[in-house]
Structure formats: structure tokens, C-alpha cells
Write a protein that binds this DNA or RNA. Structure first.
Lengths: 200, 200
DNA sequence: TTTTGTGTTGGAATCGGATTCCAACATTAG
DNA sequence: CTAATGTTGGAATCCGATTCCAACACAAAA
């Protein structure tokens, strides 16, 4: 897939709104042509079909998230601090692209079935978090994880679903507020901080 | 939608495997007819179309989860203990129906766009957890939540994604193991239990 | 500036699959 | 034994995705 001419790239994003709303199936190519202002023929000149249009949009979103998250991971501070930034980064991009996020989740099946996207998904989310969990065990800012993969997945789930809900309901709640709620749950947990309570 | 004759109901489940694998679009009605052994005409006699078949399967899954979760919520013990049982219940049903779970997530968009399912989704997950969070604040077994809705959503995300990953990779990891990992993260959090560490 | 390659575009032609229709037949409740 | 309901095969339709094609715009190269 050659790089899409910028002129078109800028227009194509309008499609994510449509796809997020109705899902890819119920979105006709002609509908996409209409909202984006790109004629059907031109769309087919650049994309193999509907699925590839969605893939383009999602890949773009995931790349953006991966980039922001990457910065957070590489930043200074304890693993815990960096993980906090990662959460903020992810939520930030999600809130800036609510339509793409909804489209992504709505057609998650298709997304994960495209090998290219499955990789991007993993790189954008799990891997960085997994790394931070290991770092945290080293620098003492996080509890050692018994299964970093498993924990990373759960963290991903919590953050993503939290961000998604905001994207769906379209709340104007600021990213910081959501990030704080997520961080509180993930770092401090739900249990009161009494002495024994641990798993005997 | 009249109650599906049991004879068909038992057969139709075979479709979830197919849908989970390919997604609804790439699954032809004829494919469904083939794997289930139910002729196309008969399928159309009972369902409006493909989407309604998926809806039936998902509704069924969600009902099963809601039922199990319901038992856990109503059980004896502190809110924390009951929440633990809720997590186990959800994971248990998910692991017993991996195909349906994958289908659900793969076509989550469609699922949430069907009002009936959106309600079932909410009843099966958020609501019970939200209630437990409130109970936990009362009986002291859980920290008071600043936003039960938000916390419930995150918990849902962590549990679901954890269960989903197992369903996707088809691991044979026992439910208890997964549930313990989830519970550890959610109750104890990631942060070490030093004195100050809280959010200053 | 003529040539050539690449991007644009409208519209016709195809194709595949979903859904609808219909008629014959089976089963079951009354 | 009927009537109502469930089953089923196969034809007929419909719709939208994708493919094809030809005309045209534009820019770099000769």
C-alpha cells in the first residue's frame, strides 16, 4: 500500500465517525465517499476495499498511541511514574480520537484478524506496560508481578475500557480525571490498607 | 422473537465457533447452515437474518453470565468476598464459552448497537459490580469509591480482557489461577504497601 | 512542447451473498 | 381427522461491493 496522498489522507478521517456509528458492514462505500468527498472510484484506486480503509484508520490510531506511549515509557522517573504517564498518554490519544476508538473496538474482531493491526495493537499497549512492570519490580516502585503478561493485559483492559466508555458517552470529563481514577484503582487497589488482609 | 425450539437451540451454538473465527461478515448464512445442520430456509423462518442469530447467541451468553454473577452477588460474606466470587463467576462462564466470548468481542460494535444486548451487557457486568462497590464501602471490606460507575467499568475491563485473552489463545490455564491474578491486581494494586505512597 | 506516467473520476458491467417467496410436506395440538 | 405451525428445497430478487474501462488532469521527463 503506497503512502496515501496527503490530500486524501486528510479527508479519509471523516469516515471513522461514520464507521464508529454504524459499524463497517452497515457503512456503504458510497456513504464513505459522500462524507469524505472522495469518489468511490478513487477510493478503490487506493484501497482494496472497505476493510482496508478501516485498517488504514486504525493503524493510524494505533501508531499515534504507540508513539505517545513510547515517549512515556522512555521518560524519566520510577516505573510507577512512567506507568502513570503511559496511562495518561493512552487516554489522551483515545479522547482525542473518540470516533476511531469506537470504530476500533466495534470492529475489534476484524482488527485483530488483520496481522498487521494485531501487531500494532500489541506494540501500542501490552509490550510497553509489560516492560514497565518489570522495571517497577527492579526499582521497587511497583510490586513484583507474578505474570507480567497477564497483568499487562488486565491493565490494558482497565485503561482501554475506561477510555472507551468516555468516548462512547462523549463526556467532556478531562483526561486527568479519568487517568487519576484509573491510577488509583491500579496502584492502590480496592482493598483497605489494613495489616493482614493479604492472601493468606 | 418466539422461543426457539430446543432442537434448534441446541444446534445453533455450533455457529458461534464459526463466527468467532471469521467474524460475522465473513460468515455466510450457508456456512452457518452447514455447521449447524439447520437449512437456510429454516434459519430464516426463525431469525430475521445473520445479525439476529449472533444476537441470540450473545444474549444467551450474557444471560448465563448475568445469572452466575447474580448468584455471586447475592451470596453470603463481605462485599470483597462476593466480588471475588463475581470475578470467578464471570471468568468461569467465559472460559466455558470461549467461542461465544470471542464472537462477542469481535462484533462488540454490533452487539452494543442492539439495544436489547446493550441492556443485557450492562445487567451482566456493570450493575452487579457497582452494587458491590457500594456495599463494600458500607461493610468496610472495600475502599469507598469516588465514582462507582467508573470503577465498575474498569473492573469489568480488567476481568473481561483477562478472560478474553485466555479464550483467544485457548490456554488451559484453570479459572482459579486467572481469577487469583485478577483479584490480586484489583484488590491489592500495583504499588508496594509503604506508608506515604498515596497521592499527595 | 510533446511524451509519458500517475492520479482522478464517472458510469457501466459483474458478482456474490442476503433475503424473500413459494409450494410441498411433516408434525403436533385439538 | 383438521387446522395451525414448523421444515425445507429451490427459484427469484435485491443490494451493495468490487471490477472494468475510457476520458481526463497534471506533472515530470525528454
Amino acid at each position: 500500500m503506497k503512502p496515501l496522498p496527503v490530500q486524501l489522507a486528510s479527508k479519509i478521517y471523516a469516515a471513522s465517525e461514520l464507521i464508529a456509528e454504524r459499524g463497517l458492514d452497515d457503512t456503504k462505500i458510497e456513504d464513505i465517499a459522500e462524507v469524505t468527498g472522495i469518489p468511490v472510484s478513487t477510493l478503490y484506486y487506493h484501497f482494496r476495499g472497505k476493510a482496508e480503509i478501516l485498517a488504514f484508520l486504525l493503524n493510524d490510531l494505533l501508531t499515534a498511541i504507540a508513539a505517545e506511549v513510547g515517549v512515556a515509557v522512555e521518560s524519566q522517573g520510577t516505573a510507577r511514574e512512567r506507568l502513570t504517564r503511559v496511562i495518561r498518554a493512552q487516554l489522551s490519544v483515545m479522547l482525542q480520537n473518540p470516533a476511531s476508538c469506537r470504530a476500533l473496538v466495534g470492529d475489534l474482531g476484524r482488527a485483530t484478524r488483520l496481522p498487521q493491526l494485531a501487531g500494532a495493537l500489541s506494540a501500542a499497549f501490552y509490550q510497553p506496560v509489560e516492560q514497565l512492570l518489570r522495571d517497577g519490580a527492579d526499582d521497587g516502585s511497583l510490586l513484583p508481578s507474578e505474570d507480567t503478561m497477564s497483568d499487562a493485559v488486565m491493565i490494558f483492559g482497565a485503561v482501554t475500557v475506561a477510555g472507551l466508555m468516555e468516548a462512547v458517552v462523549g463526556s467532556q470529563r478531562p483526561m486527568e480525571s479519568i487517568a487519576d481514577a484509573v491510577a488509583r484503582l491500579l496502584f492502590d487497589g480496592l482493598a483497605p490498607r489494613t495489616f493482614d488482609e493479604t492472601h493468606a
